[in-house]
Design a protein around this nucleic acid. Structure first.
Lengths: 233, 233
DNA sequence: ACCTGAACACCGTTCAAGT
DNA sequence: ACCTGAACACCGTTCAAGT
């Protein structure tokens, strides 16, 4: 506990917009969004929480800046095939989120707003429209993919935490036990839930990467079903 | 402010699991999840926060119970066509969420766990599999639809709030202004974002219901693309 | 303008003590 | 077992005062 705090450097720093985001992001990475408090961030600068209000109007603004910083790590290569591009975009986004603990939840409080994310959106939009996706579908698709990625990343974090709490036993093993308990619970209800009990293992099968990839593929297949016969180009 | 609190009945009540959930849900409905505090709920019973801990081990457990209560309002009619059934399920879920303020966010902290939701899952799973959807696809589809519905409902709430804050002007009007500002911002960048500036109106067009319906349809189309040629039945 | 100590109005949770 | 007042260890934000 005390060790976790000591892990963040104690050297006094100069206050400043970026330096404050640095410290907040480091706390997010090591302990999660909930552990960020104005007092604790300020303490890293050997001062009180009031000092931060010269740079951010409130805590929410600070957390928005943290999200913008993280989002700017997402690289979007310019792939011609729009389906492959969308898949890559989604996976890169998710990888960045999962590399920063539960940062994905911040996406539900703030829509990221940086030149870098606009540039990514521009490329994806262009390749989709060039590929024959109707502009309205392409425009909404960007939103939907972003929403799905953030929701999956955050839920994945929570599921990981759920099976990590407590005993210190292997989360994977605890997850498997939970699945088994679920299955026998349904089976114990006799013929009340025949499908749930028969397919209980399928409902929880696959690791989180497979499930995520499947969801993205379903969305892409949906978008593809709206492609006009003759792509311009 | 004081009026909002007075809106919740002040009559002293008997403490009890359901009565506590009642009070918490009423606060969620009228003011949102963030306004629920152990102290405030307890005050409705003319007692202190410690009294609640005889019924719930912590605040999280209380909020989980609120979500379970809300989820049990979702009705799932047994429609034979699985696509229609899935669509109805998704829309009914969303309607229940949006009828309870920002309650959807609780779905990211707790997977609802009630006989009623199991019964719904059973029906959906059965109709999908009978309709020729591979069991693995059907099982994951349930998860994905649930995740998407919760994410959309919560984001929709936040967007509504974003354009409601401040001036007391019409949120719809403020939203339109924001779209216009967005478009001219992209246009002002010259040819840096040609697609974004050309299609800026599309990206924010349609009301939240249309966008939600579109997302659900994309997912359903994706699932449908995995249907085997010969549905059993 | 940037920065600060102190205060204000809150939190969730625990605990000893009661019934 | 259910219930409680009081306390503990925190919050975000504001403000008067300094530079």
């Amino acid at each position: 506990m005390a060790r976790a705090r000591a892990a963040v450097s104690r050297r006094p720093r100069r206050l400043g917009h970026d330096a404050i985001v640095d410290v907040a992001l480091r706390i997010v990475d090591s302990e999660g969004v909930d552990e960020v408090s104005m007092r604790r961030v300020a303490a890293e600068f050997n001062t009180g929480p009031a000092s931060l209000y010269a740079y951010f109007p409130n805590k929410e603004a600070l957390l928005n800046a943290v999200l913008d910083r993280v989002i700017d790590e997402v690289e979007v290569p310019d792939i011609e095939d729009w389906q492959e591009l969308l898949r890559t975009f989604a996976h890169n986004c998710r990888n960045v989120y999962t590399a920063h603990n539960d940062v994905a939840r911040l996406n539900f409080a703030h829509i990221p707003n940086t030149p870098h994310i606009y540039a990514s959106a521009e490329v994806v939009l262009r390749r989709m429209i060039e590929g024959g996706v109707p502009p309205q579908v392409a425009a909404w698709a960007l939103d939907i993919i972003s929403l799905y990625v953030a929701a999956d990343a955050f839920e994945g974090y929570l599921l990981g935490k759920r099976f990590d709490d407590g005993s210190g036993r292997d989360p994977e093993e605890l997850g498997a036990e939970w699945v088994a308990a679920m299955g026998s619970m349904f089976a114990a209800q006799g013929d009340r839930y025949p499908y749930l009990s028969r397919y209980a293992d399928l409902m929880t099968s696959g690791d989180s990467d497979q499930r995520f990839a499947f969801g993205i593929d379903m969305l892409i297949a949906g978008f593809a079903s709206r492609v006009q016969r003759r792509p311009k180009r």
